[in-house]
Design a protein around this nucleic acid. Structure first.
Lengths: 213, 213, 213, 213
DNA sequence: CATGAATGAGGCTTCATTCAT
DNA sequence: AATGAATGAAGCCTCATTCAT
């Protein structure tokens, strides 16, 4: 009775094998210049095999983001539901979660933001697109509720909670993309972590209601 | 004796004609799905003609950003040099400039951020890349100097000025891309302007040194 | 355990199939007017398939010559090493070899001479060019050594052996091209074989040391 | 009454200017890689102008050969008609003419042989093709008549006179093409003149009737 | 399931040629 | 006569995808 499970596990392993390869290749060459053959070679599989696991190139590309969105979703939900009652603390936990999301898979997260800002999004299968939208909505939604609480408690400035979560997310993705872009051109030192820290500091200060108010 | 000038003007007009068409097509279809033939048709020219004005598809794409970067550069320089001595006022002027940059050409600015976060950047001709880098560097550099002054005068938090300008830029581009991405999927109301406003408010608050300090 | 061999054999068969088709098309239309699609159609394959076997059009063109150069190389080497000690006999064998080389593949040999006298040569991949150069050098070198022996034995005129082999080869290719060119314009009788015979007779007489000397 | 002549002379000058440019460009790049724009640039004219003087690219290419064929034709005719009665002397004069033809315009002569051995020949306008054929026929014909005389006088071997002139011509073109091809690949010393000398020596010996006969 | 050879649509680009000025 | 910008046909080649083994 373990045989079916083993099959399933092996199938999942193969999927991961492809995902890992795709991640590397897409990160190095970008969506267009990366070929399915490149990815197959990196995964030590034949091109045909990729199509047993992914409907086409775009879905494979999008699939990379899925795991990270799931991870994000779990972390954010956890912060929302389980962290203490203090909004500031929750914001800290949220920021902590974002660092972890980045460290979880730096290559993929850049891929994901590229996807976000790309025509590819428009060409996904409805199912996959729905999954992505759902996960995004949930994460952003939970983030918004955290801000909502903070606003109600007078700890955060009075702004639309959804706007705040969009802004936190935009800041996060904006900094990552901009630093990645700078690194792509110059091979300077990578200032990402430093810049992110300042960015989050700034966000914290910016979102916090003035003490005297 | 005006004949040479007229020729030059016509040549420039033709270039603009192509740029306008390219802008539309790239915005609608994205870099990959847009074909040179699409663009030629939109410009009511033959495909071959495009190559009299642009070396290839990627350079045409990148050229779109150039005008906007120049506009940005001028505006930022102006703020840096000519605005009054008050750092906060300069920041206001800077934010004002960014709104104007966006309004100057919304389609193109999204293109530009896509380009920024794209493999295409690596395939440009050295000259064009150099132009883009130079304009970016100048704008970001001037922004950094504005922050520097503010920090010296104790009006802004003590952070690396370059980091602050990177963050302002990242916030700007991050919000625009994220909202564009949301609009691409849902055809909801466009919250860009509102969100940008909150984002800049937040930035202002975040970057300002506390009154009590 | 025969499966890999069969694959290899089939792959080689496919290559030959393409070569045969290319030979026909190039001979009929010449390098420029022949299109890869023509060749694919002649080979009853799709255009893309050609590129699985040949890097590009020029390499396919050049590949045609390779087999014939190999054949030439083997024949000349054989004459050089194995034919009797008599220089005159060796020259006969050499001339015999040249006739055979021509008969081995008349279409291709004309292709080969066109290639030789063409800009195409400069655009080949270094590896292929090296192969061609090597085979040519070996054949011409062996021919030169045959002449060298004859000169040492006082049977051939005192001339630079390399010059003699260049001349024999030039005479051979010159006559073939010239006759082919005449045939291309007029559709007269084909005098190639007769002319070649006279040419070789003349060469034999010309290269032979005078009896009385 | 000189104005029309001056016009005509200027027109002819312009033609020559183009021919000179075309010669250089074709020699450097070969027929296919050379573009009309290259040639126009080399001639310091605009592309459109070329078409005022030559119907198309192929005719321009072929025109290069025309002048040299005319020169050849004149020289050969002169040898045929005016040189002394001695066949050997006439052969000398013929060989001398060939050297001169080569020196007259080395670049063009290689062009001409490329043309001879090329698909281009098949695509010329009937008129131009007819001119080329006529000039070739006349030259080769006159050469054949020289050999004929020599044979009748018992000074040359008994062979078909036309074959002999074809062979002399083939030898000449074969050596030139082969040496050019060698030079194109290696940048060795150019052995053309030395090899040609040996080739003609050999021809002389080969064609001469044995003294003892 | 895996393979990988084959497909073939379609894109980018070139360039000979034309024509309004 | 000269220009040179514009044309547009057509070629080479790539590569996502399929399918017989």
């Amino acid at each position: 009775m373990g045989i079916r499970e083993r099959k399933a596990r092996e199938k999942e392993r193969r999927r991961q094998q492809i995902i890992v390869a795709a991640k590397r290749v897409f990160s190095k060459k970008g969506f267009n210049k990366a070929t399915m053959e490149d990815i197959a070679a990196e995964a030590e599989l034949s091109p045909g095999t990729l199509y047993l696991y992914f409907k086409n190139k775009e879905e494979l590309y999008a699939s990379l983001s899925l795991r990270i969105l799931q991870y994000l979703r779990i972390r954010v939900e956890h912060v929302h539901k389980e962290a203490g009652p203090d909004p500031q603390e929750k914001l800290e936990a949220l920021i902590e979660a974002m660092y972890d999301v980045y460290d979880f898979d730096p290559l993929t997260i850049i891929n994901m933001f590229h996807l976000q800002s790309s025509e590819t999004l428009k060409n996904l299968s409805p199912e996959l697109l729905e999954q992505i939208k759902k996960l995004s909505r949930q994460s952003i939604g939970d983030m918004a509720r955290i801000f909502e609480e903070g606003i109600e408690k007078g700890r955060f400035i009075k702004a639309h909670p959804m706007a705040l979560s969009d802004i936190l997310w935009s800041l996060f993705s904006g900094v990552i993309l901009w630093e990645a872009s700078k690194n792509a051109i110059n091979q300077d030192k990578d200032y990402l972590k430093e810049t992110l820290k300042v960015a989050f500091d700034l966000f914290r200060r910016g979102v916090g209601a003035d003490k005297g108010d």
